Simulated assay, not measured.
Amino acid sequence: MQTLLFEQDVQRIADDVTGPITYQPEVVSPVVAQAWFAALHVQGDWHASTRMMYERLVGVPRLHCHYAVTDPALPKVLRDALIVVRQHVDAPFNSIGLNFYRDEHDSVAPHNDKLHELVRHQPIALLSLGATRTMVIQRKQPPRLKTALELETGSLLVMGWNAQLNYDHGIPKLREPAGPRISVAFRVRPERENKTW
């Protein structure tokens, strides 16, 4: 994987040894980002899900959907977004996962992506659309450095494969009102027969 970091406004959150993790605002303009958000809000195949927590079934606090890049049902807006992301990150993305944070109550707990679900040494690229939300990125080992990163609409966060070993990331709930946000995550998944994306 090669991340194309020639842009001057790229912010480096983690170095190449433990990451890399980089952030770049306005990969797409606010106008385009808003149009893409509106399209995905309507066209996304959104689902709610549940999980076991503390021995009881609870709702996951966000909606989600997934597409294979080769899926004939892939919305055109995601095809357009993929073209843009590939201009910034040199990776053979084949999976697109979306999370819809409806308001300040929706969140995702600190976690790292499961490495067995990713192709080794390939990155994750996260395009943010809609309202700005804070992502907290924390190193797993001492010093447990923590970064609170404001993910603006149209921005691109890129996490190297190695970053999943060394950092957790999450979107906390907020006490104050927040507008809706869609995150679009581009990944390289292992090719498997009958894979459900």
Rank of each mutant, 00 (worst) to 15 (best):
K114Q: 13
N94E: 01
G97A: 14
L165A: 15
K146M: 11
T132L: 01
R56Y: 06
L40F: 09
L151H: 08
Q43K: 10
A148P: 00
T132E: 04
A148W: 13
V60G: 05
P143C: 06
R120T: 14
L127S: 02
L78P: 05
S107V: 02
C65I: 05
R51A: 06
K146I: 12
A163W: 11
V119D: 05
L82N: 01
Y101C: 06
H88L: 02
L151P: 00
N94P: 05
A109F: 04
K146F: 05
H47A: 13
R62T: 08
V42H: 04
K76G: 11
V77F: 09
V60M: 04
H116N: 10
G130V: 02
L74E: 04
H66M: 09
N99Y: 02
P75H: 12
G130H: 08
I137H: 00
G97Q: 07
T134I: 10
H116E: 07
E152R: 14
V85A: 03
G44N: 11
Q122A: 12
K76E: 10
M53W: 10
G44F: 15
Y167A: 12
W161P: 00
L78K: 07
L127A: 02
R51T: 11
E152T: 13
N166C: 13
V69A: 14
D168E: 02
T147M: 13
H47L: 14
H116A: 13
